[in-house]
Amino acid sequence: MLEVRNLHACINGKEILKGVDLTIKDGEIHALMGTNGAGKSTLSNVIVGHPSYEVTAGSITFNGQNLLEMKPEERAHAGIFLSFQQPVEIPGVSMVNFMRAAVNARHKALGEEQMKSTDFLKLMREKRKFVEIDNKLINRSVNEGFSGGEKKRNEIFQMAMLEPKFCILDETDSGLDVDALRIVAEGFNKLRTKETSAMVITHYQRLLDYIRPDVVHVLLDGRIVKTGGAELAQEIENRGFDWIKEEVTE
């Protein structure tokens, strides 16, 4: 279970999050919506520990652990996975070596035995199927020369490899055509277990047609100003955010 309490965070001295409260229980899917610059990506970056952001007040706990005291890789080992909005390219580092390093680091952190090379490659082959990702991509450098859609698929593929407990999908739908969106979303759904929880950041209803949220939050100007069920997303799709802004100012 993820618990965010009164979270304030800033970047380059500018306050972006101004007191966020959020509880995501195991197995729940929460959608996070809001205008550009409202702080959605900031919230996800702060949860995974991006060093550019400074937390000035509040707390984040994950299954009882104080996340704010943990390094980014320790948070990853605890089971938190971020599907980046813009995955970075790492030239020269093959996906195989990259994933092997990630999987081994996780095993080590969890006190498990290192995987044998053959088992690892077998696992790669298996997981690839979830997102219908081409073997050629796997042999290339991390994200290098990938199209926008391939990068997003590659994120979900890594999720499959690392089997996280809590996933953040940061605008995973942006730049995807309908077919690619379906593949990515269905891949995610196949990977979910009863315990997996997720925070889905999106501007559009169409992703939420595939990944049904239990709860929808609206983040405006660094605060969650409205929370509702799946129907709230539909309403935003139809009416935009202005009516919520008006509600808030009233």
Binding site: E73, A76, A101, A102, R106
Partner: peptide, 21 residues
């Protein structure tokens, strides 16, 4: 940071990236 988020320590990430380079 991308490597960190996937659970790879900074030290190891540098080794990985330099060897890739």
């Amino acid at each position: 940071f991308y490597c960190n988020q996937r659970g790879i320590s900074t030290e190891e990430a540098v080794g990985l990236i330099v060897n890739g380079y």
